[in-house]
Amino acid sequence: MKIKTGDTVQVLSGKDKGKRGTVLRAIPAEGKVVVEGVAVVKKALRPTATNQQGGIIEKEAAIDVSNVALIDPSTDAPTRVGFKVKEDGTKVRVSKKSGAEL
């Protein structure tokens, strides 16, 4: 998966189209990401020992990784991601628009 935890992304489709946020969690096995402030759902929690109050909370749901695009820090625009192997043998992510390392 080309998007990692901590990346800034922009939502490309869905009810939150156009919103930007940081990736809180990446789930490569399912091909999904959890983005801060995007796909917020209400969830009912029963009272437990750790959460005495219970009630309804709001939390971010996972969205498909194909519906987000990584933001290129140099141009501040959404871009696709490629890979490049440097001379010392390390593999780095590269912006397809600007060619800059991510």
Results as ranks from 00 to 15, higher is better:
residue 58 E to H: 05
residue 77 A to H: 14
residue 15 K to T: 15
residue 93 R to F: 12
residue 6 G to F: 01
residue 84 K to R: 14
residue 6 G to C: 03
residue 59 K to S: 11
residue 99 G to Q: 06
residue 80 R to N: 13
residue 53 Q to A: 15
residue 41 V to A: 11
residue 43 K to V: 15
residue 26 A to L: 07
residue 17 K to V: 13
residue 63 I to W: 11
residue 10 Q to A: 06
residue 17 K to E: 14
residue 5 T to M: 11
residue 65 V to Q: 09
residue 12 L to H: 02
residue 55 G to W: 03
residue 80 R to G: 14
residue 37 G to K: 13
residue 82 G to Y: 06
residue 76 D to S: 09
residue 2 K to N: 10
residue 13 S to L: 08
residue 68 V to Y: 06
residue 82 G to I: 04
residue 14 G to A: 02
residue 99 G to N: 05
residue 61 A to M: 07
residue 9 V to Y: 04
residue 14 G to K: 01
residue 35 V to L: 02
residue 80 R to Y: 08
residue 96 K to A: 11
residue 8 T to E: 15
residue 85 V to I: 14
residue 34 V to F: 03
residue 66 S to F: 02
residue 19 K to E: 06
residue 91 K to P: 08
residue 82 G to H: 06
residue 55 G to A: 04
residue 102 L to C: 00
residue 11 V to A: 09
residue 101 E to K: 11
residue 50 T to N: 10
residue 95 S to N: 05
residue 78 P to T: 02
residue 90 T to M: 12
residue 28 P to Y: 15
residue 56 I to P: 00
residue 75 T to F: 01
residue 53 Q to Y: 10
residue 1 M to T: 15
residue 93 R to G: 07
residue 48 T to F: 02
residue 7 D to W: 02
residue 12 L to E: 07
residue 18 G to S: 01
residue 48 T to Q: 04
residue 53 Q to E: 14
residue 92 V to D: 04
residue 28 P to S: 14
residue 70 L to C: 10
residue 36 E to Q: 15
residue 40 V to D: 03
residue 96 K to Q: 12
residue 76 D to P: 01
residue 91 K to L: 14
residue 57 I to S: 03
residue 73 P to R: 01
residue 20 R to T: 14
residue 16 D to L: 10
residue 13 S to I: 08
residue 54 G to C: 03
residue 2 K to M: 08
residue 88 D to H: 13
residue 71 I to P: 00
residue 80 R to T: 07
residue 65 V to C: 07
residue 10 Q to L: 08
residue 89 G to K: 13
residue 91 K to C: 09
residue 68 V to P: 06
residue 36 E to P: 00
residue 3 I to A: 02
residue 28 P to N: 14
residue 25 R to D: 07
residue 94 V to W: 01
residue 79 T to S: 09
residue 76 D to R: 12
residue 65 V to P: 01
residue 84 K to Y: 13
